[in-house]
Write a protein that binds this DNA or RNA. Structure first.
Length: 463
RNA sequence: GGAGCGUUCGUCUAGUGGCCUAGGACAUCACCUUUUCAGGGUGAAUAUCAAGGGUUCGAAUCCCUUACGCUUCACCA
């Protein structure tokens, strides 16, 4: 049985695209092995909680199509799936470790800890807790009984920790570089390290697939598993998405919230397809593949170690491919809904064949097609003084009884020839008066859709 | 600063000792298609495989050193 999870913290407004990439691998690995994919909310830092963040995250994850088998929303056999509702469990486990001599109470003040670290750094030492409280546990316990605030710290054993990472191979870390990590904070909440280990164990997580930022703290987690006497899960630390300057993908330098891309009209399928290729490639070299196909061919062993740069340009290209491959009917519905159903569906439908190859994301539609819904209010090129020209064009078009694009085109080409005007100039002016823009969908077809009357009216506006 | 991890075209990547005078995709450029823009087609340019040493008949692939980059060192996750 394979069970994977993502453990987002509601400390941001939405899901980070990097988290979606991680979620995708967790999801795919679980599904490939007929296992379960779990979402657990790690809301243990009350000072950083963003209002509405959790709701938004869950909503976005659902939109993106990575449905959880167990989560705060859908529940499950190991509920609750929100850490703030599991405080008793962590406390119990932390105290169990104290009893076993693997952890200890500490009443040091933040001020003392800060000063200690500053001194250590000034002396070029590794900043770590000096175990003052560990050496005086009886006294510390007495203080706690008198009401002192306290934390529980992990007692890091001497020696080295070795473990296998699916992505990175064998990792060795000397424990002398590790600090006696706080497990239970003075507010009664667990730190990430306690919470993640206890929950991953209790929720029977078999594969911990997470960002590489966790690699340095994995030895602490292993010490915890060992202290409890629990079997280790499989670890896979995947590379972080980067900004073009190679730093960790951040909102300062790139849009990172997943809904930003969704709101632009990037399809969830396209986003997932793109993200799938960050640090992994299809065995047959395919660029475009479905989530189902990904699940079939994906293997955590094939994940690459190098950290990829997130390239929105390639994402857009890929979304364009999805648009072009989509059935017209479906694309129409997507656009209709994207525009909040404010524009007539039947008219959108008629424009689809004209724009399908011209848009890369749904938000490209309106700038290109707004002229179908209302006459241009301004023109990108000044048309004043062309009244006579448009009068002639108008007269020509009036003669067309069967208002079809090919007949419109034929008629206009003949007129251009008669007037001895180059096609490019001739059509540019007409395009401008009809659409208001230098760039537009094919003109004749657009005019057919607009209808004879509307076109003649637009021609007559120029003074 | 310590520790850990990484380094193949601008970007995503293929590549696990001979098939690599390094392949594909995006982006770029050119040409064709054309009344704009796309799309499609054809083609081009771009990588001394971070650098230097080894091992080997043979290395992008194995080993070592250096450089650079990233992550991390909280009662944050």
């Amino acid at each position: 049985m394979v069970r994977t999870r993502i453990a987002p913290s509601p400390t941001g407004a939405d899901v980070h695209v990097g988290s979606v990439a991680t979620a995708l691998m967790n999801y795919a690995w679980a599904k490939k092995n007929k296992g379960q994919f779990i979402i657990r909310i790690e809301d243990t830092d009350r000072t950083r909680i963003v209002e509405g963040g959790e709701v938004q995250m869950l909503k976005t994850l659902k939109k993106i199509g990575l449905a959880a088998d167990e989560s705060p929303e859908v529940g499950g056999p190991y509920k609750p799936y929100r850490q703030s509702e599991r405080l008793d469990i962590y406390k119990k486990h932390a105290e169990e470790l104290v009893k076993k001599g693997k952890a200890y109470y500490c009443v040091c003040s933040p001020e003392r800890l800060t000063k200690m670290r500053e001194d250590q750094q000034a002396n070029k030492l590794v900043p770590k807790y000096d175990r003052q409280c560990f050496d005086n546990q009886e006294e510390v316990i007495k203080k706690i009984k008198e009401g002192s605030r306290f934390v529980i710290r992990l007692l890091i054993p001497e020696g080295q920790i070795k473990f296998d990472d699916v992505v990175r191979g064998e990792i060795t870390i000397e424990t002398k570089n590790l600090d006696d990590q706080v497990l239970l904070k003075s507010d009664g909440f667990p730190t990430y390290h306690l919470g993640v280990v206890v929950d991953d164990y209790l929720m029977k997580i078999t594969h911990v697939i997470r960002g590489e930022e966790w690699l340095p703290s994995t030895p602490k987690h292993i010490i915890l598993y060992t202290a409890f006497g629990w079997e280790l899960p499989v670890f896979a630390h995947i590379s972080l998405l980067r900004n073009p300057d190679k730093s960790k993908l951040s909102k300062r330098k790139n849009p990172v919230w997943t809904s930003y891309y969704l709101e632009q009209g990037i399809f969830p399928e396209a986003l997932l397809n793109y993200l799938a290729q960050m640090g992994w490639s299809h065995p047959e070299g395919k660029d475009i593949f479905s989530l189902d196909e990904y699940i079939k061919v994906f293997d955590i062993k094939d994940i690459q170690k190098t950290a990829p740069v997130f390239d929105p340009v390639k994402l857009e290209w890929m979304n364009g491919v999805y648009i072009r491959e989509m059935k017209n009917e479906k694309l129409k519905t997507k656009i209709f809904e994207f525009l909040d159903k404010k524009y007539p569906e039947d008219l959108i439908e008629r424009t689809i064949p004209l724009i399908k190859e011209r848009i890369k994301k749904l938000s490209d539609y309106l700038p290109l097609c707004e002229f179908f819904f209302k006459a241009p209010e301004k023109y990108e090129i000044d048309l004043s003084g062309k009244k006579d020209f448009f009068g002639i064009v108008s007269a020509e078009l009036k003669n067309i009884n069967n208002w079809k694009s090919d007949l419109i085109g034929e008629s206009l080409i003949n007129l251009a020839k008669k007037l001895e005007i180059k096609n490019s100039q001739f059509f540019a002016d007409i395009r401008m008066v009809i659409t208001g823009k230098k760039i537009s969908p094919p003109l004749n077809e657009s005019m057919e859709i607009l209808g004879k009357e509307a076109c003649l009216k637009r021609l007559s506006v120029i003074k």
